[in-house]
């Protein structure tokens, strides 16, 4: 059960059931153009098409018409320029088709808003730092090298 060990299935035996599945699924933005009722997922290698279908239907209550999947190698890329290579983990890419007429539009982030917000915060922080530095330098104007608490 929770030891993640299932006995072998032979005809006539009771059906094997998973009580605590530990598979993960990632919903990913499609790399190429595809019909609106197809959704892409990244799943672990051990997951089968049947598993994916059951997973979505039972846990997320999504009706699935068809599932097809393929294995994909993780990217191999250098850490620094001319540095050592690092390989990302392999995964299975699944294409799940929803029933005809349904569509799923992948949501988008407002990157510019977030970036401008973060820049503003950075500027504020810089200004505060500058102000504090000015205050500090004014306090120890005549006696350089002494701490600020050393005053009358």
């Amino acid at each position: 059960m929770s030891s993640r060990y299932y006995p072998i299935y032979q005809i006539g035996n009771p059906q094997l059931r998973i009580f605590l599945p530990n598979f993960w699924m990632k919903l990913v933005k499609p790399t190429e153009k595809q019909p609106p009722n197809v959704v892409q997922f990244k799943v672990p290698l051990a997951m089968t098409n049947y598993d994916i279908k059951n997973y979505l239907q039972k846990i997320y209550k999504i009706s699935v018409m068809h599932v097809s999947s393929e294995l994909e190698d993780g990217l191999i890329k250098p850490v620094f320029k001319n540095g050592y290579l690092v390989k990302e983990e392999d995964f299975r890419r699944a294409y799940v088709t929803l029933p005809r007429g349904t569509e799923f539009i992948f949501p988008e982030l407002d990157c510019e808003e977030i970036k401008t917000k973060s820049e503003k915060e950075k500027e504020q922080h810089l200004q505060e730092l500058e102000a504090s530095y000015k205050k500090h330098t004014q306090q120890i104007k005549g006696r350089f090298g002494l701490p600020t608490w050393f005053t009358i």
Binding site: K26, L27, Y60, I62, F104, L109, K117
Partner: peptide
């Protein structure tokens, strides 16, 4: 269907927070 698939994403209030 849209709603159920949106369970894979976080609540839109928290998008872009630090």
């Amino acid at each position: 269907f849209n709603k159920n698939l949106m369970e894979f994403f976080e609540d839109k209030k928290n998008w872009g927070k630090d």
